[in-house]
Design a protein around this nucleic acid. Structure first.
Lengths: 210, 210
DNA sequence: CTAATTTCTTGATTTTTGTCAAGAGCGAAA
DNA sequence: TTTCGCTCTTGACAAAAATCAAGAAATTAG
């Protein structure tokens, strides 16, 4: 059983790579496509594991976003404050990569704050180390671009949902794909990310349960 | 005056590059950052000029998007049809690059239709030729990524506007930056891309003019 | 230039969503 | 356990936005 946790190389060196990192490998595979197994291990070795407690911030608006984080477990809320209220942009669950992309890439002050909604396990990579991936895995720059395009497309879809759907339709679409979130994070945040008030959310929810 | 139209190199070769292409060069510079002048000419030479008549389609939903187009003059409406109505996702004006990105990159059926709202001059590049840019200009892949990130950020902002603003606020924000569109394209399309009905748009407009 | 078509405006009305306020439910902490 | 704070729900009402319908204005086609 041991080598499931600490797999051995040909010459019996222990790879300093906890077993649960395998999940990160799997997600990288699924998001970025086929990468050589050795490369994958190199990439994953650049990530470091951290835990962030409920309520704590991974990033605050105005600070630089200097790392990319992968959610191993827990929930992160990405939001920004306006004069009147906080607006939740997204909630990251297991398997999501979370970042203020613009801040990370351009070294500008971040627009988003990122807060843990429960104790959350992360694997994070610094900007510096992230750059190394491109050197080690030449293919990476292309895979990264494809990943970006997929993210872009998701945002396009989300805009389309606001141009063409009612609050109730957005609710139904969201829960068709994110059923599990409903009982695990404060509903007010989901309401906000769907572009409605908590009261409207509550009423739609009641209607859908009936 | 001639060399404004056909600028001469040191050795008096005429660069086969119509004067108005310079504008495309300028936009590439401004979007993608500093590229060597020779490279820029190479890139621009891969584009071909076309004109598309009012009402004609550059792309239809379901077809492959096999080229990237730059708007030299005119207006393009990017939209998709739902059961009830057509939803305008964006209107491209002079200086915009227009594409169904997902279709172009992944060779999937395009989600958007693109139609000319007036006779429109375009510079287009095929997917095949676009790939060559990366070979000629090694830096291109990085510049392209930065451009993508900027586009991504714009979409994030747009989502935020739907999560946090009223129709009237979106109207005002839009016209702070796109005053010129108001008298040049059917207002119903602008209404749609801002996520409101033509009637609501008309009323807000009246209110703002008063 | 005129007729036809499309687009835009306006009013009346309905529907959707937001606001305000009160109370219920629930979990965390003393 | 009991209290405190936070979240969610509910009702009454207000505001925002959509719908429907008619007509005016603008544009296009003949």
């Amino acid at each position: 059983m041991l080598n499931e946790v600490f797999p051995l190389t040909d010459d019996n060196r222990i790879i300093p790579n906890p077993q649960n990192m395998t999940e990160l490998e799997q997600y990288i595979q699924s998001y970025f496509g086929v990468v050589d197994t050795e490369d994958l291990k190199t990439i994953v070795s650049l990530f470091t594991s951290t835990t962030i407690k409920k309520g704590e911030y991974l990033l605050k608006t105005g600070k630089r976003c200097d790392k990319l984080s992968f959610v191993q477990s827990g929930f992160l809320r990405i939001f920004a404050a306006t004069e009147e209220k906080e607006v939740t942009q997204w909630i990251s669950t297991k398997g999501y990569f979370t970042i203020d992309l613009s801040s990370f890439v351009f070294d500008t002050p971040s627009r988003w704050s990122i807060q843990a909604l429960v104790d959350t396990e992360l694997y994070s990579i610094t900007k510096e180390d992230y750059k190394k991936i491109g050197d080690v895995v030449p293919k990476w720059r292309e895979l990264e671009k494809l990943f970006l395009v997929r993210c872009f497309t998701i945002l396009e879809d989300r805009i389309f949902s606001h141009l063409s759907m009612t609050a109730e339709e957005r609710y139904n679409l969201f829960f068709a794909y994110n059923r599990e979130l409903l009982n695990q994070v404060p509903l007010q945040y989901i309401a906000s990310m769907l572009g409605m008030t908590p009261e409207t959310f509550s009423r739609i929810r009641k209607k859908q349960l009936a």
